[in-house]
Design a protein around this nucleic acid. Structure first.
Lengths: 250, 250
DNA sequence: AAAAGACATTGATTCAGATCAATTCAGCCC
DNA sequence: GGGCTGAATTGATCTGAATCAATGTCTTTT
């Protein structure tokens, strides 16, 4: 009976992915707790009521599943994979406003249009809700609303950090900040930081060009701050100095 | 008896400013509706319960009432006046992440430290809550939580726009975007845009220097896009061209 | 294994905006 | 009105990152 108070459920064709579907790590939709954890607000009755509210979809790498400016009809929860969020100018200039991974919510707009686009980096599993359904869910599960507020607050803090980076940091400081952010994001055992995105994505995230990103990474290598590994990874070899650089202390 | 369902209340020494205190326009704390409007979730009993939850404070121009990195003990609602929010680097470089005016909430942090500083531009009237009190309020009034989520969503959209501006727009595009934003913010009858902040604030908001801001405004004047008025105002004389410039179409 | 294409690095040059440096202007307070 | 002070403008020069241009290095395909 312990499963009755657990968020984890197996996959079925059309269902609400509460968490941990496909045996991958995930977050409870209503409380934000990791997949295997107990989630007291959800029981079998709740799950039966919710079963038909969401559609599971798959987005292949490179697929833009949210178009900037399009009518904001749906709301998404990322079940696995990672996504880049961006805004663009008419002449093609692009700013990546953030990366989102497993457990993140997308499409929370007050406006009736999406304010940003979203594109799959690798293969992404998504849980899609209609907007009225989402409203219903928030009414039925107040903890969901609290969870969304917490996530929005965190994103706001991240956005403010990014504004400081884009408005006032040098190229070296930007790249250092980015590497440390990636490290914290992907809490691997070692200090090997995975960089699954291209140089172009890094540049569009940091407000630089691909050449400057590349040059800066090379400079960091010659300065023995990092070691550039095989297959889009970087090892930080002088954490203290990199942190000082990212914080703008040099 | 119609006052029982109205948010508007007169001022008392220590009280929750629900809205419209001091006969100034304001917003209902729980529903976000303007001062004079009906707010069905608040009645006299609620008001009695809430009466002692907040402290009204005054911040004089230039006063920093939230210190970046300080323990996040309080939560604020701006009752009147305008505020600049900012982050700084150790060497003094500064990024203004936004301006907040009447009705806005500040200090909504998941972390236990403030992620940004806040300084009064003019004289600011504030309604201050302790964090536990705020949590209590959110439990008692679910609409407050919804209101905060809506505000956070809007701020997130604004933050994404600002990231695009800081990462990818030219100085001219930045200043044009800023003027239009100010115009929309202060929906005056005429096209006279008030700019109460200094050139230094504008520069720190747009990721530029004061010289570049000044030069760009002068250029816009010679190009007959704007007319610079007396006492920190600007009149937009070529809306279409300015909008095209802000959108990056030239 | 070779070819093709995308992605990444490195070099040379340019330029938008920063920095340094005077003025000029707008409030203020006697 | 006449200094006084901080803010704003304007000019001259410099520089960090962009742009232009090869070259090099992975991946995928066949």
């Amino acid at each position: 009976m312990s499963d009755q108070t657990t968020c984890r459920r197996d996959a079925r064709p059309r269902r609400l992915i509460l968490a941990g579907a496909h045996r991958q790590p995930g977050y409870c939709l209503t409380c934000g707790i990791r997949a295997q954890s107990i989630c007291s607000v959800i029981d079998d009755d709740d799950i039966a009521r919710l079963a038909e509210t969401a559609v599971e979809t798959l987005a292949l790498p490179g697929r833009t599943f949210i178009e900037e400016g399009a009518p904001a009809t749906d709301f998404y929860n990322i079940t696995s994979g990672s996504v880049k969020l961006f805004k663009a100018l008419p002449d093609g200039r692009r700013q990546i406003t953030g990366f989102a991974t497993t457990g993140h919510f997308l499409g929370l707009a007050v406006s009736d249009q999406y304010a940003f686009g979203a594109e799959a980096i690798d293969t992404v599993r998504l849980c899609r809700f209609s907007r009225p359904r989402m409203r219903q869910l928030m009414d039925d599960f107040p903890r969901l609303e609290r969870r969304l507020l917490a996530e929005a607050s965190n994103e706001l803090v991240a956005a403010q950090n990014q504004m400081l980076l884009l408005g006032r940091k040098t190229a070296r400081e930007r790249v250092a900040s980015f590497l440390l952010e990636r490290m914290r994001e992907a809490r691997d055992p070692a200090e090997d930081v995975p960089l699954p995105m291209t140089r172009s994505d890094m540049a569009d995230y940091l407000g630089l060009t691909i050449e400057t990103v590349s040059r800066t990474l090379s400079w960091m290598r010659t300065e023995r701050l990092i070691a550039i590994g095989k297959g889009h990874t970087v090892r930080i070899t002088a954490m203290e100095r990199l942190e000082a650089l990212a914080a703008g202390e040099s």
